[in-house]
Nucleic acid binder design. Structure first.
Lengths: 154, 154
DNA sequence: TATTGTTATACTCTATAACTATA
DNA sequence: TATAGTTATAGAGTATAACAATA
């Protein structure tokens, strides 16, 4: 022997593995999104805006990033003609962000590309394994407070 | 109604979710590692070096990053006195990287901290759920060619 | 005074390309 | 020539802090 496999390696822990796989998954998703002029981080915004306009601070809180990051992301989405900033007439400090028709179309395409990426990564998994994996990840996301109120309406 | 939950949101796909959870997991692991002067990305190197010295290009290939990144990471590990660069006497272009005694200690501590982080993220999971999640992630890592030859010896 | 959004700045992680020294 | 390692630089992602307009 001379080598103990169960010595517990860092690379098999979730703490490490999720970080590395996150990079891989984002990279693959980004490659598919690139032709649309989108990156993964824009997708959560498109989704949040799908059902109703929202203010920038709402968006920042919902996706768990600092407000200045949302400014950047919206600048980019505005440049892609996916969203519009509309000044709130009842409180002129706020901007209500709404999806354009093009934004809705981009959002649908992004979902399709994400599914393609998933199929690539889950090649060889049976239905139960894939479901178990997704359930586990959603559960962690939930307990971490990500997308809590908006994307899990049921 | 007025809202279709199964509209399939991007935020529930692996492509997106893995990216976001990767940030969360790395962030939490990093917070625990910080007092040791380490960051998550150093851990794979410490592990690879645990059983035998290796050249820098070997390390770069094994962890799937470009060689210049390994230079940086080793500079940091050297500063933490975790590794030594030893010029290969048979090929003076190569440097064999070896773990110091302190490096071995740091590696063991890092594993313990990763486990703590896992326990925090897996709070409420039963054994089977946790195992299913880990198995699924390891399988994706495997098919993506990560840590292929070194960390999975069996 | 407090809040919304913005700008300026900085830090981490990664990659590419050009360089040095050895082979 | 080709290879091992290094440096310089750039891009994506994040965050903090100071600021303008509005409340």
């Amino acid at each position: 022997m001379g080598y103990v496999a169960t010595e517990e390696s860092v690379t098999q822990t979730l703490a490490f593995l999720l970080g590395k796989l996150g990079q891989v998954a984002s990279g693959r998703f980004a490659a598919r999104l690139a032709p649309l002029g989108l990156r993964p981080r824009h997708c959560a915004l498109l989704e949040l805006l799908a059902h109703a306009p929202k203010a920038q601070l709402e968006l920042a809180h919902a996706i768990g990033v600092t407000p200045s990051v949302v400014v950047d992301m919206l600048d980019e989405l505005e440049q892609a003609e996916a969203v519009r900033r509309v000044r709130d007439s009842t409180d002129r400090r706020r901007q209500l962000i709404e999806l354009t028709t093009k934004g809705r179309r981009l959002r649908r395409r992004a979902v399709a590309l994400a599914r393609e990426t998933d199929e690539e990564m889950l090649a060889g998994f049976d239905t139960a394994q894939a479901a178990a994996l997704r359930t586990g990840l959603l559960r962690i996301a939930d307990s971490a407070g990500l997308f809590g109120s908006v994307t899990r309406p049921s």
